[in-house]
Design a protein around this nucleic acid. Structure first.
Lengths: 235, 235
DNA sequence: GACGTAAGGTCAATGGCGTTGGCATAAGAG
DNA sequence: CTCTTATGCCAACGCCATTGACCTTACGTC
C-alpha cells in the first residue's frame, strides 16, 4: 500500500530493484531533475521516472505521497542550492544584488523544475535563512524598520517573479520557442511605421534586448530607488 | 476529423448541439473561463468543458486545434480586456502606472487562467497595441531611444512577472492557501529572537504586508528610477 | 548461523485524460 | 427540392496517477 511513507532518515532496508538499482530520495529527486531537463516539464511522469530508475512506478509511492509531494521535494532542492556558499560583504547594495542574482540564477538553471515549483511556498529552513539574511543586510545598512520591510517585500517578490517568468520562457518546448522567436522577427521587425511608429523605430534595439532577461535592469532600478530612500531617511 | 479548424469569421452553419446550445468560439472561451474560476486551473478538461457546453468533447476540436490552442485563446481574451477603454493623459508617470496596474489587475482577476497563459507570447493585436502605447508614453515624455527601450523592457516584464506571481498564489487550492497562511502565523511570527533576530523584529509588519501584492511598490520604485534617469538625460 | 518481521519491491486493475477516425445530420446555396 | 459539407456525435486508443494485494529479501534477535 502507498499510505505510510517512511521518512528518509528512518529507512533501514535498502532492497534493490529487480535491475539492481538501490533507491533513495536523493537519487529519485536527481533523476527527476534530469528528466525535467531532458523531456520538459510535462515529461516528468511516474511511469517514465520509474523506467529511468529501473523500478515500477508504484515504488515511488513508498518515498513520496504522490507526484505533488515529489514536486515539493524538487523545489526544496532548488532553494537549497541557491544560497549555498554565499557570504555577505557588508556593502548592502552589493549584497542584495548578489542574493537576487543567485536566487534568480538557481531557478533559471533548472527552468522546467522552476516552472513546477516557483508558485509553491515551503517555509522551510533555507527560505527562512534567506529572508533573515536580506533583512539583516537592510537593517545593517541603516534602513529604518518600516522601510526595511517595504524594500524587502518588493525585493524578494521581484526576484521570485522574474525567476518564474524567465524560467517559463526558457522551458517552452523548442517548437514553441522557435515559433516565438520567429514571431519577433516576422511581426515586430516588420510593423509599418504608419500604424506602429514607436515599435518601428525601436525594433532593432528591441530585437536585441527582448531575448535577454530584464531582471538585472529591474533589480538595479529597485536598488536605485532604495538608495534614494536611504538618503532621504538618514540625511 | 479534427485537423481543418474553421476560423470563427468563416463559420456559416451554426448547427445546435443535441441539447440545443449553439456553440461559438466566444461561448467556449467564456465557459472555459468560468470553469477555471470554479474548478481551478486543473479543472479545465475537454470532457468537463464538453459537459458544461452540453456538447461532445470532440466537438471542441472543430473550434480549436487542441487544448493548448484553447489556452492561447483564453490568454488573448485576458489581454484584450486589460487595456479596454484606457486613454493616455499625457503625464508619463501617471500613464505608465495606469497601464501597469491595469494589466496586473486583468490577470489577477482571473488567476487560474493567468496561471495557464502568463508564460505564453501571442504577438497578436492587443499585445502589439499595448507595446506601442508604452513606447509612445516614454518617447513623448522625452526619454532617449536607448533609455526608452531599456525602461520599456523592465516595465513590461516586471508587470507580467508580478501578474504571474500574484495569480499563482491566488490560484492555490484553498487548502494549500490556508496552510500557507497558517505557516506565516505559526512559523514567522514565532521565530526566536536568538536565531532569527531580524525576522523577529519585523514579524508584525511582515505579517501585515506579505499578504498583499508588492507590485504597486515595485512599480513605483521602477518609476522613481526612470524619473531620475530622465532628469539625468535631459538636464 | 537460523529465523521472523516488515520494509520495500512488483503486479494488475481502476478511472480519468486528450485526441482521432468514422459516421450522421441538418443548414444553407443553387 | 436537392446536394454539399460544416458541424455535430460515438467509440476507441494509448496515455496518465494512483491503489490494493502480493511477494521477497535485508536486518535485528537469539
Amino acid at each position: 500500500m502507498a499510505k505510510p511513507v517512511v521518512p528518509e532518515e528512518r529507512r533501514r532496508r535498502r532492497r534493490p530493484t529487480r535491475g539492481g538499482t538501490v533507491l533513495s530520495e536523493r537519487l529519485i529527486v536527481e533523476t527527476a531533475l534530469r528528466m525535467l531537463r531532458e523531456h520538459g516539464s510535462a515529461g516528468l511522469t511516474a511511469r517514465r521516472l520509474g523506467l529511468a530508475l529501473d523500478a515500477d512506478p508504484s515504488t515511488l509511492y513508498r518515498y513520496f505521497r504522490g507526484m505533488d509531494d515529489l514536486t515539493l521535494a524538487i523545489g526544496d532542492a532548488l532553494v537549497g542550492q541557491a544560497l549555498d556558499g554565499w557570504r555577505p560583504t557588508g556593502r548592502w547594495r552589493e549584497d542584495l544584488r548578489a542574493v537576487g542574482l543567485r536566487i534568480h540564477a538557481a531557478y533559471v538553471a533548472h527552468p522546467q523544475a522552476a516552472l513546477l515549483t516557483t508558485s509553491r511556498v515551503t517555509g522551510r529552513a533555507n527560505e527562512l535563512a534567506a529572508d533573515e539574511a536580506v533583512l539583516d543586510v537592510l537593517r545593517s545598512a541603516g534602513f529604518p524598520l518600516a522601510d526595511t520591510v517595504t524594500v524587502y517585500h518588493a525585493f524578494i517578490d521581484q526576484t521570485l517573479a522574474f525567476a518564474a517568468l524567465d524560467a517559463a520562457s526558457l522551458a517552452l518546448p523548442s517548437a514553441a520557442l522557435r515559433a516565438d522567436e520567429e514571431m519577433w522577427r516576422s511581426t515586430y521587425a516588420r510593423l509599418p511605421e504608419e500604424t506602429h511608429p514607436r515599435i518601428a523605430e525601436a525594433a532593432p534595439l528591441l530585437a536585441r534586448l527582448m531575448v535577454t532577461s530584464a531582471y538585472p535592469t529591474a533589480l538595479e532600478m529597485l536598488l536605485d530607488s532604495a538608495a534614494a530612500r536611504l538618503d532621504a531617511a538618514s540625511g
